[in-house]
Design a protein around this nucleic acid. Structure first.
Lengths: 245, 245
DNA sequence: TATGGTTGTCTATATCAATAGACATTTTAA
DNA sequence: TTAAAATGTCTATTGATATAGACAACCATA
């Protein structure tokens, strides 16, 4: 079921990077759990059909990420292995959803801007194009490891001061509560995937070629009035989404 | 909002491939819609900060995919541009969901196998480990373009002959109906993203480095009894998922 | 029809990626 | 203590990747 590991040449993606990605994925899927170690370099080289030096380049990249640690004479130990589950339901909330899977949650407000809504944002929030909206750029971490970077838009009139409230509580739910919105629900979520650009690479501490899961979400109050539209970019090798119907 | 195009060196991913991926994405997002053309090679080279020859390698790769076509003296024309929307709800069905977005739908049964359920499959289907299940490998196309490749498991006792029924109707829904299951619902969906392996590259007509959206789904009958567990791999640049709550 | 803008082709050079082989160093276990 | 198994380091060679420059071929249009 896991699928044979294979690798292609002359594709613009170096073999060592393809192999590093496969091994990272295998670790995340729980292969190698019995030993807690990656197979020996010579075995991996045979499995992937490449030279041992090429495997070493891949393992060096994973060591750089802190995922494995090579010990001379013993082997290559797995250091970290995680994939957070992120449920998407009517009651989706980042902090509550991840809360029990990580010891420490953190949310950083990177930027707060008041701007005119683009036609797309206006459509999602049910506003006239050009209406004023507040845009927040946030970075969310679990156990000091960045999980997602999000851009959120709010109607400026109704939620003036949401940046300050968010900075204080480090939670959208609590920020809404402070501004008089006791409850809200997830109306729609669109999920796509893409390669990370350089800005996301830096903020999410990813290596180039990394994949993002992108969730575009619209939240409404209990009367169905849009209160938030957001685009969240998740490190694909650290999360999975669960949709329960 | 689209983000500046940027590109990184010495990452194991060739510059021409990074640039090809960025341009493909930009085309999918509707940039360049006004002209129907990609900017001139010299302009792209300047934007990405690379040599013109490197841009030409990227455009050659996109031409190979049939996405653009270069015309000497005029420029590089955009040939194809699509992203199918795939709703995920309690009533998710592939054919009905995509039906109105493409002219021609097709479903191929690649393989049918009777096997023992692994512990994971047994858990999802509510069976004892080692129980007999039927596994179907299917490829789904929209307008002759492969969209997803799926592996599905069914309880063998209840759905004997589902392979034959699927081959006849080219639809899970109709195959279920023929076997006496008039209706079913989507219970859970897990979404992840990963790089495509070589088997998927070939079947989905992708280029190496391509991204897959992976949906692991469990369907039940109206009494909540599992009837199907499936792992579908979608070409990420051809689809998006929509979750309506 | 002349010109500017665009893609196509060629040569040359430097660096990265991958293979190959040999041997050192460290750990584990016989 | 010894041998086997594993990672670490070094040299050498080949092909892919990227840059640089020059010029040809083609198209649209002033």
């Amino acid at each position: 079921m896991a699928g044979l590991k294979q690798v292609q040449r002359q594709t613009g993606v170096a073999l060592w990077r393809q192999i590093a990605d496969r091994i990272r994925e295998a670790i995340g899927n729980g292969a190698y759990d019995e030993t807690g170690m990656v197979p020996p370099e010579t075995v991996l080289a045979l499995q992937f059909g490449v030279n041992r030096h090429t495997v070493r380049s891949a393992l060096a990249a994973l060591a750089q990420e802190g995922i494995v640690r090579a010990v001379q004479g013993r082997g290559t130990l797995i250091e970290r292995k995680e994939r957070l589950n992120f449920p998407i339901t009517r009651r989706t909330r980042f902090t509550a959803g991840i809360g029990d899977q990580a010891r420490e949650m953190r949310s950083l407000l990177l930027d707060e801007v008041k701007e005119e809504a683009s036609s797309e944002i206006a459509r999602w929030l049910g506003l006239k194009p050009g209406a004023t909206v507040i845009r927040l750029e946030t970075l969310r971490e679990a156990d000091k490891r960045p999980v997602s970077k999000a851009t959120s838009w709010f109607p400026a009139e109704r939620f003036a001061g949401i940046g300050e409230a968010y900075r204080k509580h480090q939670s959208i739910t609590k920020a809404f509560a402070e501004l008089g919105l006791a409850d809200y629900v997830r109306a729609t979520t669109e999920v796509t995937a893409a390669h990370a650009d350089t800005a996301d690479l830096a903020d999410l501490e990813l290596t180039p070629g990394a994949i993002l899961l992108i969730a575009k979400a619209m939240n409404t109050d209990l009367d169905g009035v849009p209160v938030q539209y957001s685009i969240s970019r998740f490190a694909a090798d650290r999360v999975q989404f669960t949709i329960e119907n």
